[in-house]
Amino acid sequence: MLRFLAGRFAVLIPTFLGVALVAFAFIRLLPGDPVMLMSGERVMSDERHAEIMKSLGYDKPLSIQFVDYLGDIVTGDLGNSVVTKRPILDDFFKLFPATLELSICAIFLAVFLGIPAGVLAAVRRGSWIDQSLMGTALVGYSMPIFWWGLLLIILFSGILQWTPVSGRISLMYYFPAHTGFMLIDSLLSGQPGAFKSALSHLILPTIVLCTIPLAVIARQTRSAMLEVLGEDYVRTARSKGLSPRRVIGVHALRNALIPVVTTIGLQVGVLLAGAILTETIFSWPGIGKWMVDAVFKRDYPVVQGGLLLIAGIIMIVNLAVDLLYGLINPRIRH
C-alpha cells in the first residue's frame, strides 16, 4: 500500500511541472500584458511601461522567468497578484469554499440522481422510461453550460421570479464567515431567512453545474448495469430467492459501481472547469470567476497559481478515487 502511494505521488511531480509550464506559457501567448491593461485608457510612455515591467520582473527572458517561478513554487510561494498585490494563496483559500460548496452540491445532486436514473434505465431497458431518461441525458450532456444557465435565469429569475439572479446570498444579510460555506454560516448566524436566501441562491448554479456530470453518470451507470445484469452471479443471486430490489440494488449495483466511481472522479475535473463558466454566469464569488477576471487583466501570477492549485486538487481527487477503487473492488485490494 505504501509503495502504491509512493508510486502515485512520484507521478504527481512531472504532472505538476507540466501544468506549471502550460500555465506559464499560455497566459503569455495572449496579446497584451498586465501593465498595459492596468494603465487602460491613460497614455503611458514606453519608458514608464518598461520600468514597471522591469519592477515586476517581466523584462527577463521567458526561460529565466520560468525558472524563477519554479523556484518560488518549490518554496511554497505562489506570488502576489499584479493587480491587487494580495498573496495568491490568501485569495485562493478565501474564494475556494464558495467553489467547493457549489461543486459538492452539484456532485451530490449528480450522483444521487444519476445513479438511480442509470439503474432504472438499465432495468427497464428499451422501455419509454429508458428512452426518455437517456434522451434527456444526451441533451444534458450536449448542452452548452453558459446558454443553459442563461435560459434558466431568464425563466426562473426573470419570468417566474422564483430565484435570485446572482451572488451567494441576499445583501440584507451579513454575518461572519466561520466555515466559508454559506449554507452552514447562514445557519450558524441564526438570522431568520438567511439560510433560505443562501439556499435559493445556490439552486440554479447547482443545477447548471451538475447537468453534464449528471448526464455522464447516468449513462455510465446504465451501461455498467446492463453489463453486470447479464453476469452469472446475478443469476445466482436470483436463484437464492432474493427480491429483485436486493438482486439489483446489492448484487448488481455493487459491481456496476466500480466503473461509475472512476467516472465520478473524472467528473470532478469537469466540475471545476464547469465552475469557471457557471460562476461567471451567476457572479458566484469563487475561484472560477477569480480566474476568469485574472485572465482578462493578464494577471499572470494569479492565472499560473490558480491553474496549479486547481490541477493539484484534481490530482488529489483522482488519487483519492484510486484509493476508493481499491476499497470497493476486492480484486484490487488483495
Partner: peptide, 22 residues
C-alpha cells in the same frame, strides 16, 4: 421466491463467475 433457494436450489456450470466477486 420463498421456495426458490430454500426448497429448490441450483448450482451452475461456471462456479468462478457464479459467485459475486464483490
Amino acid at each position: 421466491r420463498t421456495i426458490i433457494g430454500r426448497d429448490i436450489a441450483m448450482i451452475f456450470q461456471e462456479p468462478m463467475s457464479s459467485l459475486n466477486p464483490c
